[in-house]
Write a protein that binds this DNA or RNA. Structure first.
Length: 801
RNA sequence: GCGAAGGUGGCGGAAUGGCAUACGCGCUAGCUUGAGGUGCUAGUGUCGGAUUCGAUGUGUGGGUUCAAAUCCCAUCCUUCGCACCA
């Protein structure tokens, strides 16, 4: 009989559905395993061949865990709020809710055709009011704890989407989504104080098992630095505070630079003699987008403030103050002391403006470039610091600054608070009203969910107001606090809101009185293994860790970190090695692959394509190789014979393969796990026959990768029961070795011969064998052995002279 | 500029001090099939000798070692991330 993958796959998918085979049990006494993949945004394009790569990988892990006896939770859902759906709805005059439902239906059908073992009884959708009720609830808790606030902010504004973007959403100066120009705009925005958690978000990375590159980029993004704040008196009689990571170089500070937005300029305007010039520079800087600012990064621009000078506290010298857009108001104090001899940007600026450069750390050549090395330099021209190392000097100067009330140690972060408002329709309404008398008031929790109202048109207004602002019946309300007239917040939450806690909802998806029962959370959390894209490292991953830590602080969850382990997959590229996209014409549709080759071949190929963590180009011909492998596994039926033990010829091969496959799955080495099973198949065909026991083990090993064909063969061979109810096979380390091994015989490190020997042969036996070998004798003719190296089971090497 | 990952056959990739190229694709030859994106067998890094041989070979140049794709130093290139963060 031929391998009819279509019939087999639909048969088993139906059986699994009827039997609820992959339903996670609410039996909290069993050992649990929570495997998670990022839930997709159900776009109009349908599933991409990139989606199944991580889904299949953790499906393999989940299926293996079930065979190992765990109660496994492997859920799926839809991150369905967002701009593309809204834009599509606007263009085609369909309600986003309808578009979302259509897209979800298509995605679900496509995902189900792959035979992934998701527990569909726990499916969630972020646009479901029963779900976003709890997104809003979390927001209210953040508000009540002072972590959500509204503030006038200089924000990133996408001119094409007409929407505010978080810093994380601005990529190369343009909008991450549409590529539109991003400019700065001052707007009143809801903000979340993620910065309050900056230190913990770094510290707690110690306790989790994330791949290194994820930890590194999170740390870089949070950007912790240590240094000092130093107060400089000015000739205007006030104080300017700067932040520096190099207080040791204070004696080399020859000028000061403040940001164009620094408040001092307004405050001391009457003392500034060149105000026109300053204002012109400020205006030019304000107009520039971040992209333009960084494009011209190499050429330093600025204006000296005439009329006010700063006084260096260590030597009482007056130094000039400049404004320049290379100093950002949003970091540190918006003012720096410039030490051109030991900072690259200051060096460039000093060269451009012909300012003095004083060396205070010896060891470099400041004629040529700034000397920034902290490890080797020795302090010079620095009064009391002379002769000290940089590290010693830092300590000493900070102590001196503190003693004299001039400064103190300070930690700074690059991380900014999270801009949380979007002027859009298709998102969670922010559950706050504004009352003239009471200010911002949260709506009572029992009124949640605050439903997204029906609208005629989803267009944002030209002045950047949310579409909801056009609906008076929504906007006008009464204050929950005083009962007077009040207006609702009309901005909605960003797409990242719903995905910041979704892993908690899976634990108890239908709970109406809490985001999930405490008992369920305590049992399932933390997620044991979370796999997702590297592109989410600084957005979703950081945001969700922040929310989780907050929920931990208020007692909702019992673990500090949401994910015990995080891994990441590489992208699947087009056949030409470029990113798959419609415009490049290299898109592969997963439906076509499933139709032509079957889900099992598709799954196998997605895992065999290369190193899971690296990008790999799609190749149709290699797909055929995987189909061939399954055909050959199917055809083993022709040579199988009775027998409930492993056949002698294959025993060590089978033990070796169990070990290899078991270990490789845990280490993301799916490609070599498959290669090992292919090698076993080659061994079986060399042997000419196999027992049922041999076959059975091969089927169980292959089951997580190709669940349909293995389940079918298991039934046809009459083993009884379903394969997914069996146990993962174990191996015997001793039996992984063959009885005899081939060893290599070398003279001076060059291979001269090979020989069979008992696998447990002693070093002496091996050396003797080598000495008696004709080719070895020939190679050593007339020479003296000066050293014998014997590696058991591997090689013998004689060093001769 | 800073940070991370990487550079191995015609291709995807194995090998983390001990037989370089496992496994798969492709290709060559033979058999099979006889309307095929079929099946089987043998071969397939390079150069030279042509049966069972010799040399050479993991970006480049040095080094450590009996032994290096693997460890160390230098250098070039590719990809990704961050980018005036004081």
């Amino acid at each position: 009989m031929k391998y009819d993958f279509k019939a087999i796959e639909s048969k088993w998918q139906k059986i699994w559905e009827e039997k609820q085979t992959f339903r996670a049990e609410n039996d909290y006494t069993k050992p649990k395993y929570y495997a998670l993949v990022e839930f997709p945004y159900p776009s109009g394009q349908g599933l991409h061949v990139g989606h199944p790569r991580p889904y299949t990988a953790l499906d393999i892990v989940s299926r293996k865990r079930r065979l190992e006896g765990y109660n496994v939770l492997y859920p799926m859902g839809w991150d369905a709020f967002g701009l593309p759906t809204e834009n599509y709805a606007m263009k085609n005059h369909i309600h986003p809710e309808i578009v979302t439902a259509q897209n979800v239906a298509r995605f679900k059908q496509q995902i189900q055709s792959l035979g992934l073992s998701f527990d569909w009884s726990r499916e969630i959708n972020t646009t479901d009011p029963a779900y976003y009720k709890w997104t809003q609830w979390i927001f209210l808790q953040l508000f009540k704890h002072g972590l959500a606030y509204k503030s006038e902010m200089n924000v990133n504004w996408c001119t094409s989407c007409k929407v505010v973007l978080a810093n994380e959403e601005v990529v190369n100066g343009v909008c991450e989504r549409c590529g539109g120009e991003v400019v700065h705009k001052v707007k009143s925005q809801w903000m979340l104080k993620i910065t309050e958690y900056a230190q913990r978000l770094i510290d707690d990375l110690e306790d989790v098992d994330y791949i290194d590159r994820v930890k590194v980029s999170q740390k870089n993004w949070i950007g912790r630095s240590t240094g000092a704040e130093v107060n400089f008196k000015t000739t205007a009689g006030d104080t300017l505070t700067v932040y520096t990571t190099r207080p040791d170089t204070l004696f080399g500070a020859t000028y000061m630079v403040i940001s164009p937005e620094h408040p001092m300029i307004r405050e001391k305007a009457d003392l500034i003699k060149n105000m026109d010039e300053i204002t012109a520079y400020q205006e030019a800087a304000a107009k520039k987008s971040d992209f333009e600012r960084s494009e011209i990064a190499k050429d330093k621009t600025g204006v000296e403030i005439q009329g006010i000078r700063a006084i260096n506290p260590v030597n009482e010298k007056e130094i000039p103050i400049f404004i320049s857009d290379y100093v950002l108001m949003s970091y540190g104090t918006g003012a720096i002391m410039a030490v051109p001899a030991h900072d690259t940007s200051d060096y460039d600026f000093a060269k451009a403006f012909n300012l003095p450069i004083i060396e205070v750390v010896a060891g470099g050549d400041i004629e040529k470039e700034a000397f920034t090395d902290c490890a080797t330099g020795v302090m010079v021209n620095s009064g009391m610091l002379n002769g000290l190392s940089v590290e010693e000097a830092k300590k000493k100067i900070i102590a001196w600054l503190e003693e004299n009330g001039i400064g103190h140690p300070k930690v700074n972060f690059k991380l900014r608070d999270w801009v949380f408002s979007r002027q859009r329709y298709w998102g969670e309404p922010i559950p706050i009203v504004h009352c003239e008398k009471c200010g911002f008031v949260p709506i009572p929790e029992e009124e949640l969910p605050l439903m997204l109202p029906e609208l005629e048109s989803f267009e944002p207004t030209d002045d950047g107001q949310s579409p909801l602002s056009k609906l008076d019946s929504f906007v006008n309300t009464t204050c929950p606090c005083c009962g007077g007239p009040a207006k609702r917040e009309t901005d909605t939450m960003p797409q990242w809101a719903g995905s910041s806690w979704y892993f908690l909802r899976y634990c108890d998806p239908n709970n109406v009185s809490a985001l999930a029962a405490k008992e369920a959370l305590d049992y399932w959390m933390p997620v044991d293994w979370y796999n997702g894209g590297m592109e989410h490292t600084t957005l979703h991953l950081l945001y969700s860790r922040f929310w989780h830590k907050f929920l931990y602080d208020i007692g909702v969850v019992s673990c500090k970190e949401p994910y015990a382990k995080r891994t990441s997959h590489g992208m699947i590229l087009g056949e030409n090695g470029e990113k798959m996209s419609k415009s490049r014409g290299n898109v592969v549709n997963p439906d076509d692959v499933v139709n032509e080759y079957g889900a099992d071949t598709m799954r196998l190929y997605e895992m065999f394509i290369g190193d899971f963590e690296k990008a790999a180009p799609w190749k149709d011909t290699s797909l055929r190789g995987c189909k061939r492998f399954l055909d050959r596994v199917w055809n083993l039926q022709d040579i199988v014979c009775e027998g409930d033990t492993y056949s002698q010829k294959l025993e060590s091969s089978i033990h070796k393969t169990i070990k290899k496959v078991s270990e490789d799955i845990e280490n993301l080495k799916f490609n070599t796990a498959i290669a090992a099973m292919m090698a076993l198949l080659n061994d079986i065909q060399d042997a000419g026959s196999l027992t049922k026991a041999d076959y059975r083990t091969l089927l169980i090993l292959l089951n997580p990768f190709a669940p349909h064909i293995t389940e079918e063969l298991y039934e046809q061979l009459g083993f009884g029961g379903m394969l997914n109810e069996q146990s993962w096979p174990s191996y015997d380390e001793a039996k992984c070795k063959a009885a005899t091994v081939e060893i290599v015989l070398q003279v001076n490190g060059k291979i001269k011969a090979k020989a069979e020997i008992d696998a447990n042969a002693s070093k002496e036996e091996m050396a003797l064998l080598a000495k008696e070998n004709d080719k070895m004798k020939q190679a050593m003719e007339g020479k003296q052995i000066v050293k014998e190296i014997v590696v058991p089971g591997k090689l013998v090497n004689f060093v001769v002279r």
